[in-house]
Simulated scan of single mutants.
Amino acid sequence: MMYEYWWANVRPLSDKKKMEVRRGIDSAEELYYIEEMKLRMFSCLEEVDIAGILKSRRMWKTKEEYEKLRQLEIEFIPWWSAGYPERLLEISDPPYALYVKGKLPDEKLPSAAIVGARKCSPYGEAQATRYAQELAGRGVQIISGMARGIDGIGQRGALNVRGKTFAVLGCGVDVCYPREHIGLYMDILDHGGGIISELMPGTKPLPWFFPQRNRIISGLSGAVLVMEAREKSGSLITADLALEQGRDVYALPGPVNSALSQGCNRLIKQGAGILLSPEELLEDLAVLGRNKMEKLYENEIKLETKENMVYSCLDFEPKNLDRLIRETKLPVTEVLSVLISLELMGLIREVSKNNYSKII
């Protein structure tokens, strides 16, 4: 894998060219030792690309760099590997590889991005918290960029209800930006979420990385929620990318005389879904959940008899353990065992102590 790590970081080669070359060869190790004459057989490579590859082979300390990656406990996931998110493979310009601390979002579960203004209003802050808590409390994974303002507020809201949240950074995953979000950074990891980037570890946050990372935020999400945005805003870039990727976009309406609501109101005028309440949004996302359930069965992931008995007794509203025991007529130990199994499968969640609800 160390040669794959090298190839992922060859500059100035684009990700698209890296993918095209990698498809035409057995391994990155072969690329590392390939003769210059054979490199020229790839029609996508220009002189500057070939020069960059040859220079990288001379300068890149392959074993040393890969060992640094391992010591940092960062997972390296190239696009062709089994762990790479299928949702990202659907977009037109997927990153060649991802670097992950913690976990990636579970693709069997619904997910939504919550994005918006860095300098948000009390109204935007309250609504971001409200939507994040309601969605995450019902098993929707919250994805954002861990930025100041709406992004960080939404992710904190998800953590408040023991939900899962994932941050896509415009820097290396070992670099906490902004620095004051170090507590949020650590809490995301401690609560089973993940820190994600397409940039190699140690990469500093530079302005042009942030618009680029937005396609990953939208790509990993089933829907994008814009909570507050000015007329010209990075959040609108995410919304545009989401539409290009076939994702649903929702916007929070606001006062017509508020600069922070102009971008959202404009999105609504252009046809974005309007955020009126978390409950209505959850109804929309429930359709995604049903589709996910159907896909599980299409893939022949079947529930055992006892699992099916317990699962069929549950609903999207929490149900107490005692009631489940009465309805299934199973011993308490068996019900608890089945509940753990269903939770590990991503089908249910424990909303509060001994109270369970369906996720999909």
Rank of each mutant, 00 (worst) to 15 (best):
Y3N: 03
W6S: 05
V10C: 09
V10M: 06
D15Q: 02
K18P: 09
M19T: 07
V21R: 01
I25K: 09
Y32I: 08
Y33F: 15
Y33I: 01
Y33M: 08
L39H: 03
R40P: 07
C44P: 10
D49L: 11
I50R: 06
R58M: 13
E64M: 03
Q71C: 09
L72W: 04
L72M: 13
I74D: 00
E75T: 01
F76P: 04
I77A: 02
Y84M: 04
E86M: 06
L88V: 04
L88Y: 00
Y99I: 03
P105S: 02
P105V: 02
K108W: 14
S111T: 03
A112L: 00
A113P: 01
A117Y: 11
A117R: 04
Y123Q: 04
G124V: 05
G124R: 05
E125C: 00
G137Y: 03
S144A: 01
I150S: 01
V161D: 03
K164I: 00
T165V: 12
A167M: 02
V168L: 02
L169E: 07
G170S: 01
G170T: 05
V175H: 04
R179I: 14
E180V: 11
D187G: 01
H191Q: 13
G192W: 01
G194C: 04
I195H: 08
E198K: 14
P207W: 08
I216V: 12
I217N: 07
I217D: 06
S221F: 05
G222Q: 09
G222P: 10
G222I: 07
V226W: 02
E228Q: 12
A229P: 06
R230C: 10
K232S: 12
G234S: 14
I237H: 05
T238H: 04
A239W: 08
D240H: 15
L241E: 11
Q245N: 10
L252C: 11
L252V: 09
V256C: 14
N257E: 15
Q262R: 14
G263W: 06
K269D: 13
G273D: 00
I274M: 12
L276W: 11
L276P: 05
L276G: 11
E279W: 00
G289M: 01
M293R: 15
K295V: 11
L296T: 08
E298T: 09
N299A: 11
N299G: 08
K302T: 11
L303D: 03
L303A: 07
E307P: 05
E307K: 10
L314E: 07
E317S: 15
D322W: 06
R323V: 10
K329C: 09
L330P: 08
T333Y: 14
T333S: 10
I340R: 15
E343W: 06
L347D: 07
E350I: 03
S352D: 13
K353W: 13
K353D: 13
N355Q: 15
N355S: 12
